[in-house]
Design a protein around this nucleic acid. Structure first.
Lengths: 254, 254
DNA sequence: CAGTGGTCTAGACCACTCC
DNA sequence: GAGTGGTCTAGACCACTGC
């Protein structure tokens, strides 16, 4: 067994959906049938289905067979965090051009989101990201010191930071994304080669390690008509919220 | 037992987090301790934790106690779908002003997302939504015929459609959200009382019933600096994707 | 090394769907 | 009414964390 049984079952079902064996709307095999087929208990099969449910691939209701949902193919967590990995996955060539890289005092905003004390320092990187030569995004990332030091040593024009960090043993476990729309500033416009005040899709992201420590706080701005985000949710799993901007501080940030 | 045991456990933990008993970063009780406290088996407690994990409230790793994550308070699925419910939850007064309501042939886009055949008709509603008197969003929703007929009979200026539909027995089970940034059209600008080309946060949403049938396809545009979306994801549950716009059709839509 | 979560089993009863 | 998923139990072994 290369990994766990329930993961293998989940992968098999995902693959069968991807290959067209089960189309959107199709009914999947029952728990008992799969349990028999894999020589597994019902609980293990249920665990596989739960994983697919959490990723928004299938729906589930008492008494009826599970059903394949429509919607975009799922993206792995790793693929979502790494611009480079994502670009390659959609058949484009990723690139990065460093604008600034510095070790400096954290701003108020950075201290809040990275949970740092007064006077803490962060590594801050501004990078222009390109898809097959076309500028599509500006990335402004602040890294907590130990991680930032690793980043500072990399060849940032060619390298995927996330992939390199993972190779160095840094584990990204959870991410919180704040998505809104802003007008391009003059710097944004100059770097992206667009007119000022053009709509940008902004994704601010806090990435944490397995113990909940924030490692990275990033402000990524995409050209509005280049990229969209897709989110799936349901009554069972709804990790999506709508917030008033200039929000009242949340308990966690207060 | 008002509902299920694992839900009660999950609610208790959520409440304890909300009340400040456990702050962000705090370690939660072990499975065995909770199992004893509730007179439940370990499996039931694990189910409760799994629900919190799916909502992005806690993190989990082998060998260590579960940890409370930071980030915005979770929003229930119902609260997320209903503008009115959401507005009341953040202490504002929701309102709606109908711009148009018609039964007409579905557009190409609507046929694709509602999975309708050639020549199908939809109920289409355009509504301006206000938060305590301030216009913040334009909603353009298409409903599949049986549901649309119910909507057509409502007093749309005062009523929350989602709440009324749920009272009538319509069940929204899953939703797929496509989020991007667009410039305000002249109609957008006129209705929202802003300048044309102002950045808007656009949420296109397909909502399905428990069997996977699409009931509603909506294009909601928020004033950029009024609203943001928050999404949590992780290696375990990642129902979030980044898509190139003008996307290649997905298998489900092809 | 003790504690803890991750995986898995084998069975039970119930609520619901579908024909 | 047969089939199916939802809930729950009791126990087992293992991998990992943290002291």
């Amino acid at each position: 067994m290369e990994q766990t049984l329930y993961r293998r079952v989940a992968e098999d079902i995902k693959a069968a959906i991807a290959s067209g064996t089960y189309e959107a709307g199709a009914r999947l095999p029952s728990e008992s049938e799969l349990a028999q087929r894999y020589g597994a208990s019902r609980g293990t099969i249920r665990q596989a289905f739960a994983a697919l449910r959490a990723d928004g691939v299938i729906s589930s209701r008492q008494g009826a067979r599970r059903v394949v949902l429509g919607g975009p193919r799922v993206q792995s967590f790793a693929e979502l965090l790494s611009f480079s990995r994502w670009a390659r996955a959609i058949g484009e060539v990723p690139a990065g051009r460093v604008v600034t890289m510095e070790l400096r005092a954290a701003t108020e905003e950075e201290r809040v989101h990275l949970e740092l004390g007064e006077g803490a320092r962060v590594y801050h990187l501004t990078r222009l990201r390109l898809l097959s030569g076309r500028p599509v995004m500006i990335e402004r990332s602040a890294y907590r010191e130990p991680v930032g030091a690793m980043v500072a040593g990399m060849e940032l024009d060619t390298v995927s930071i996330t992939e390199r960090l993972q190779a160095l043993g840094v584990i990204f476990a959870d991410a919180e994304h704040l998505i809104d729309a802003v007008a391009a500033t003059t710097q944004d416009a100059r770097l992206l080669d667009i007119r000022p005040r053009t709509p940008l899709l902004r994704e601010r992201r806090r990435t944490t390690d397995p113990s909940g420590v924030a490692l990275e706080w990033s402000d990524d701005r995409y050209i509005g008509d280049a990229v969209a985000f897709s989110v799936h949710n349901s009554a069972q799993a709804s990790a999506l919220s709508r917030l008033p901007s200039i929000p009242r501080p949340t308990p966690a940030e207060a």
